[in-house]
Structure formats: structure tokens, C-alpha cells
Amino acid sequence: MQIFVKTLTGKTITLEVEPSDTIENVKAKIQDKEGIPPDQQRSIFAGKQLEDGRTLSDYNIQKESTLHLVLR
């Protein structure tokens, strides 16, 4: 499925993911596309910070959902 990741600069990245993917996985995909190390990424969805060990389905993130990426 496709999800979108919006950065603070307003750029939107499209990722191909599975509901079973962990947040860690997703951060690795963002690193592949953007070169941002996962330890600098904070992902926010529906106002909640997403934890690395959880999966997209844990957070009820579905296709075409938009995550927000904040850098630390």
C-alpha cells in the first residue's frame, strides 16, 4: 500500500509499505529516499509519536494515510 510522509519543509514523500511493516522499517525506507538517519526521525500520526517496534497496523495506518516527519 502507499502512504505519504510530509516533512516540515512541506515536501511529501510517497512510500510503498505493508500494514505489517514496523515503524523502524518505514524510517529505513525514508532514509533510502531522503538520506535522513532513522535516529533523527520522529514520525507523528494523528497527533501521536510512533514507536519503532510497533507496526503500521498497530496505529491503524491505512493506505494513503499521511505521516508527519519531524527531525530531532
Rank of each mutant, 00 (worst) to 15 (best):
L69P: 01
I44F: 15
V17F: 03
L15E: 00
N25T: 14
G53K: 12
I3S: 01
M1L: 05
I3W: 02
I30M: 05
D52K: 01
K6S: 06
E64D: 14
K48P: 04
S57Y: 08
D21N: 05
D32S: 10
L71N: 07
L15P: 00
T9I: 07
I36D: 07
T66L: 10
K33C: 07
K48A: 09
Q62K: 11
P37Y: 09
E51D: 10
K63E: 12
G35W: 05
Q62W: 05
A46F: 15
Y59R: 02
L71C: 06
Q40K: 10
F4R: 03
I13P: 00
T12F: 11
I36R: 05
H68V: 13
P37L: 09
V5C: 04
V26A: 01
V17S: 02
M1C: 05
T7C: 08
R72Y: 13
V26I: 13
I61M: 03
I61Q: 00
Q41T: 13
A28L: 15
T55D: 01
L67W: 00
V26F: 04
R54N: 09
R72M: 14
E64M: 11
G10H: 03
H68G: 03
Y59H: 03
P37Q: 08
L56S: 01
K63Y: 06
P19R: 05
E51C: 09
T22M: 05
D52A: 06
S43L: 15
G47W: 05
D58M: 04
V5N: 01
L69H: 02
M1V: 03
E16I: 13
K33H: 10
T66E: 07
D58Y: 15
K6C: 14
P19F: 05
L71Y: 11
R42N: 13
R72W: 13
D58A: 04
F4A: 04
I44C: 14
K27F: 11
I44N: 04
I23V: 09
T9E: 11
D32I: 13
E24M: 12
A46L: 13
I23C: 02
K33Q: 12
G47N: 07
G47M: 05
P19Y: 07
Q49A: 12
V5T: 00
K6R: 11
I44E: 09
S43F: 15
I61K: 01
T7M: 14
K29W: 04
D21H: 04
E18C: 10
L50S: 01
E18L: 14
Y59E: 02
Q31L: 11
I23K: 01
E51M: 10
F45P: 01
I23H: 01
P38H: 12
T12Y: 10
E18S: 14
I3K: 00
T22D: 02
V17P: 00
Y59A: 02
F45T: 04
L69N: 02
Q40A: 10
P19E: 08
G53Y: 12
R72S: 12
S65Q: 11
L8H: 14
Q31C: 10
K33L: 14
L50M: 06
E64F: 15
K11L: 10
P19S: 09
S65E: 08
I44Y: 15
V26H: 01
N60G: 14
E18G: 07
Q41C: 10
P19C: 08
L67F: 01
N60K: 09
I23Q: 00
E34S: 13
D58K: 00
S20K: 07
S43Y: 15
L56D: 02
R42E: 14
N60C: 07
I36H: 09
T7R: 05
V26E: 01
I23S: 02
L69V: 07
E64P: 01
P38L: 15
K6T: 10
Y59Q: 03
Q31N: 11
T66S: 04
D21E: 08
Q41K: 07
A28C: 06
E34A: 13
Q31T: 09
L69K: 00
E64C: 10
E64A: 09
G10I: 06
D58C: 04
N60L: 06
L15H: 03
E18H: 14
T55H: 05
I44S: 06
P38Q: 12
S65T: 07
V17E: 00
H68L: 15
M1R: 01
E16L: 13
L67T: 00
L50G: 02
T22L: 09
R42F: 15
S65I: 04
T12D: 00
Y59W: 01
P19T: 08
G35T: 02
R72C: 10
S57V: 07
E18N: 13
Q31F: 15
L8E: 13
L8C: 14
L71A: 09
P19V: 06
Q41I: 15
Q31R: 12
N25I: 14
K6P: 02
I3R: 00
L56F: 03
D39E: 13
K29Y: 07
T14E: 07
V5I: 12
E34Q: 08
L8K: 10
N60D: 10
K27E: 02
S57F: 10
G53D: 11
Q31V: 07
H68P: 00
L50A: 02
I13T: 00
L15R: 00
Q31E: 11
T7D: 06
L50Q: 01
D39N: 11
T12V: 14
